[in-house]
Design a protein around this nucleic acid. Structure first.
Lengths: 263, 263
DNA sequence: CCCTGTGAAGAGATTCACAGCG
DNA sequence: CGCTGTGAATCTCTTCACAGGG
């Protein structure tokens, strides 16, 4: 693969690392909680603890945003809330459509975390004609036929796909064609999108599989540890405590199939 | 919690990088689909495309598992399905409990992807007495009082928390005390767990916030720079976004002093 | 040739550790 | 002093590029 893109010198002031971006919402949540308790300032140590990261990482993250702290004191909570909100683009309104109003879609429609962060559920869309007009979370479900109109009329740029895997790519194509440029995909499928469209996926079964991997490893170590540790006072500690992943742009694979298991 | 340096996961031959582990479920799904279509073998290039990653990464990933391919040919689909399943621990049964049967909990209970991968929903637990006995996804909901008993009787080591944020830590503590060592957390809160317990979180509003960040960035680029896209917008494997070639995001008229704010 | 498997180079992300300001 | 902000060291992940088996 030819390195088509020349590595840009990039002496930017706005080149926030992806890993940092992924943590900003975390800080924002912790800060919002402090704000509600009327806490005026926090140190990197305190805020880091509340957000579940270590303080060096937090300070480094904030250093990409600018110097918003005061040495010897800490950070001004309100000011930081504002700065992070602005950086994330949450100071503006983001109309969102949810396509596929099954169990998951309904749960998403009812999820309070959206509205409180500048996201507005502009419409719920489902392919089932029987769902049309039925209100979910106070919003009437509209038929897929209306998809393009809804997107355009509401200026929607973010779409959430909560359909079955088989319908996801088709829905995605229509969303993109209608102007959506960011997609949050809950369907267990790899979505193919044109350049310039951002896709993030949330795959429930993948998360469980990763847990299973670690769980299995723990079991193995335990067995090995029994031999040496007669009094298992301390639990088996194998690093890996709160781990978070979630990266930017990958997608999920296909279908849902019963596990195959060659003997 | 000593910040000990006690690590050193005793990496015998099992030194699989975390990033690789996170992709194994992806490969597994793609392979399972191929298996269903009775495809006997697949090249790294083909499989990578199906999984949405690049082939070099895939080959590197597989190299951590062993040499399961055949040069000049590719990988045997069935064999690889088995090897990955085994590595992930999916060849065994994992009883799982879901705590918090609201919209999301119900959606999870109904999610097909679990059962098909060796995960068995052993119980649904909710704090609302009115829910008790009510079947969700064919499984009767049990009251929180039964939590410890359920965990122990079923040998549950993986718990899913889908409660409101306020209840999450308490539920988490009880799960851990009862023997759960892996937790999938859907509540928008940071969970504190003892060493040895693995937590993964899925936060819907965080995903949207990350999308909003990129969406905002796109808008800024659009205004500041002309489109440079020369390549036909064909297919893209891995999504996009990650092309960090920041650009004129500098235009930020509000880079400094947002005027409004600092209370 | 076809492909896999992998050492080595490159990019990123995390952590360290301390200079320096309030 | 206490705490931020940051260069530098470290660790991890990704990508390159090619040796070598089929």
């Amino acid at each position: 693969m030819a390195t088509g893109r020349t590595h840009r010198p990039a002496t930017r002031s706005r080149g926030i690392p992806e890993a940092t971006v992924a943590r900003l919402p975390l800080y924002l949540r912790a800060l919002t909680a402090l704000s509600e308790r009327s806490v005026p300032t926090v140190s990197s140590e305190e805020l880091a603890a509340a957000a579940g990261v270590n303080s060096a990482k937090l300070r480094k993250d904030f250093s990409y945003l600018g110097s918003y702290g005061t040495r010897g004191v800490g950070y001004d909570v309100e000011y930081l809330v504002y700065q992070i909100s602005r950086e994330l683009g949450l100071t503006q309104d983001w109309p969102v459509v949810i396509v596929g109003i099954g169990n998951l879609g309904a749960a998403l429609a009812n999820y309070g975390g959206f509205a409180s962060r500048g996201f507005r559920v502009a419409a719920l869309i489902d392919a089932d004609p029987a769902m049309a007009g039925k209100p979910v979370a106070g919003i009437p479900v509209q038929h897929t036929d209306e998809l393009e109109t809804i997107i355009r009329d509401n200026g929607v740029s973010i779409g959430v796909i909560a359909t079955p895997a088989g319908a996801a790519q088709q829905v995605c194509d229509r969303l993109v064609a209608a102007g959506v440029t960011s997609i949050l995909n809950f369907a267990p499928t790899v979505l193919t999108v044109p350049d310039g469209v951002d896709v993030r996926k949330v795959d429930l079964s993948i998360e469980l599989q990763i847990l299973a991997f670690h769980e299995q490893r723990k079991a193995g170590e335990e067995a090995a540890a029994e031999v040496t540790t007669s009094q298992a006072a301390g639990t088996t500690n194998t690093a890996v405590a709160a781990k978070r992943e979630d990266s930017g742009t990958d997608q999920g694979p296909d279908g849902d199939v019963p596990a195959v298991m060659p003997a």
